[in-house]
Design a protein around this nucleic acid. Sequence first.
RNA 1: GCGGAUGUGGCGGAACUGGCAGACGCGCUGGACUUAGGAUCCAGUGGGUUAAACCAUGUGGGUUCGACUCCCACCAUCCGCACCA
Length: 819
Amino acid sequence: MRDYDFTSIEAKWQKRWRDTGLFKVDVKDPRNKYYCLMMFPYPSAALHVGHGRNYIIGDVVARYKKMKGLNVLTPMGFDAFGLPAENAAIKNGIHPRTSTLNNIATMKEQLKAWGVEYDWDRQVTSCLPDYYKWTQWIFLKLYEKGLAYKKKAFVNWCPSCNTVLANEQVVSGACERCDTAVEQKELEQWFFKITDHAQRLLDDIEKLDEWPEKVKTMQKNWIGSSEGVNIDFPVVDSDIILTCFTTRVDTIFGCTYMVLAAEHPRVEDLVAGSPDRDRIMAFVSQVRRGSRIERASTESEKKGIFTGRYVINRMNGRKIPLWIADYVLMEYGTGAVMAVPAHDQRDFLFAGKYGLPIEVVIDDPKEPLTPGNMTEACEADGVLVNSGPFSGLPNREAMEKIADHMERENIGRRAVHFKLRDWLISRQRYWGAPIPMVYCDKCGMLPVPEKDLPVLLPENVEFRPTGESPLKFAEDFVRTKCPKCSGPARREFDTMDTFVDSSWYFLRFISPGLTDRPFDKTDVDNWLPVDQYIGGVEHAILHLLYSRFITKVLCDMGFVSFDEPFKRLFTQGMIVKDGAKMSKSKGNVVSPDGLIADYGADTVRLYTLFIGPPEKDAEWSDKGVDGAFRFIKRLWNLNELIENAPEKGSDAKSSEDLTRKMHQTVKKVTEDIDGEFHFNTAISAAMELVNLVYSGISEKGRGCFGKDLLKTVARNTVLLVAPFVPHIAEEMWEMMNEKESIFKASWPAYDKDMLLADTVEIPVQFNGKLRGKIEVKRGTDDDGVKAAVMSDPQISVHLSGKPVRKWIILKDRLVNIVV
RNA sequence: GCGGAUGUGGCGGAACUGGCAGACGCGCUGGACUUAGGAUCCAGUGGGUUAAACCAUGUGGGUUCGACUCCCACCAUCCGCACCA
């Protein structure tokens, strides 16, 4: 028997899969459709084994579903716009397009070497005009619906990346990419009105019953809805009415002052003419300049300034001072807060610092509070006091009554506020899809007509480390004609956030070649939602939320008929090395190239899957790869084993055991894949089966198995491991005289009646402690079991002299004797 | 601070609805075959003991005939959010 020459065997099958189009589908025939999708990657230099996990998992699922008879669509593409390529261009002068396309070529080779198979005819590359034309089209559709708008706002600015960032891209006040502290800058920017869909994005999470709870919770928290009341406070000696949002309207009678955010639009009007105006505005601009990190820090002491103004609390007619403070955020609620120091910790600290009054309005009748003795705010429930007609009510009940009263008297209105902000999509960078808008001196701002798409990115631009987008200086690009009056006009030179590109790519895979539409509605409706989406949990909020939003918009506009894009989501864990995420800078990257050369792709795949449950992080061990390689060799040598096997087995019982184990293994592997993708235990089950086959070969122990039985077992084993180790499986399948690919064969079935043996070994416990085992016929009744225990000398010694209090007998499973 | 997850041998990890803790693999120990092995095969491998007893699933309690699994309290680590009114 020849050695297992993985290099040539793997090359042979990879070529054959490509030549025969293993995963080619006809989208016009959606019967038994199964859309299996892995998140498409950003084309960075080279993949490491950590990346591989994602693609290998997806490949296993695709191959398994194919063997289950489904019509599997599994495409791949590249999220090819983005900052790194542009930054590299500034450094080394290579055009982002060139480096990106090179990286894509390298990655495709790596994926193929792993034996990860896709329908490459459907490849989408988001940086190419045939794709971004339709990204721009989506922008126009949102603009048409009033869901894309431009406004001047304080935005997150990363001084290192020289661009704005979406809220979702700011992590603890720093840029998610480079960790630089994010600044606030007032700029005119393009937004998508995702907040219009906040409630729906939140409510529909309930529909996603095949998504991980963790991801759903993260999205819920990010959208962050809270219910409360918007209350109007008229400013004394002014026409201005300030509205504040509160979730604790029950504490309204304890409101002793009001606070505005420094960014509040009425600040300037309110302090105009005040003798302290300059001092106040100096404070305001100081707060506005502060970085988000400093401002968000809970540790830092709250700072504020009195405006000299007062507002009226219309519930009791009281005049209360109006302050400006750094702890109030413009981006949440209304940017104005009613302060109740007795019942809100932040207000309590602020009041203490600036000597503002504290008034208790919710009390525990058993332990009344005295404002002077309080060391912290009391945020607990209780009964209202000092609250006019509402005194004496439990506070939860009072909330409703007061809200009703306010709505009747037009003092306030019930309201829901979200943490979710509109999605800031403009980027001051070159390597992205240009925003298809034109500014004409005469006609104003206009969208580029659909027929003029794509707005092409100019190729000949200079990449200079000036911190400004090269597009801005590309005269030929910026200068254009007004689509309405044909007069001189200039183009928008900001590009779109790359998350816009990736928020619809799963639709394009269905109709990758269409030139007159982004996708075909019928086909997309037939194939979507994606049956299985696989990717990293780092996209729990960004990409997965944006994609849900865009899908809902397209659904509302009638372009698609479904409003959630991903039916089932699987988020795999990271592979770490030496306790840290693999990264070039840490120097702990494990490249698949050398491993595949030394052991073959099947071994690398097998180890990657065997390392642990795929949803959890796992530590990579080069040694572990040896174990996988050993299994591959043992699997291969089954060929030789069969050749040398006798025609007839020599021990009927061993043969029965092996047959039973085979059926059990089919059941186990099938259930592990169908369930939570527990490939690690599926593989260990296959190993156990192979181990049992080998145990029949050794001189001692069991007798030898007959040729026919071994053939049956080997055949099933090869089928079971085919999704994990496809190359060796194909080769062995072919050696079994099969003409078609193993992935066209059906997944093996097991026989329920073959799973259980006639006799069972039952553990015998005394007071819950294991003392021995008995072997009885399956189904033996309690008396029979008792008799077996009594007659076993090893076990019955434990009975001597002790009265038995109770027998606990679980049929075929366990005996416990209480003495 | 809030929310979520996870704690099992030297290591990665198994364990059904509460029922033989440590499957499978790595590593390690001994042996066989070898000129040689980082190849292959065989045996062993949680601690403890000549052998038992006994001790072991983060810690401390509880429920139960019986707890990795259920309940209560705590500790540690990781992740997400974080002045959200």
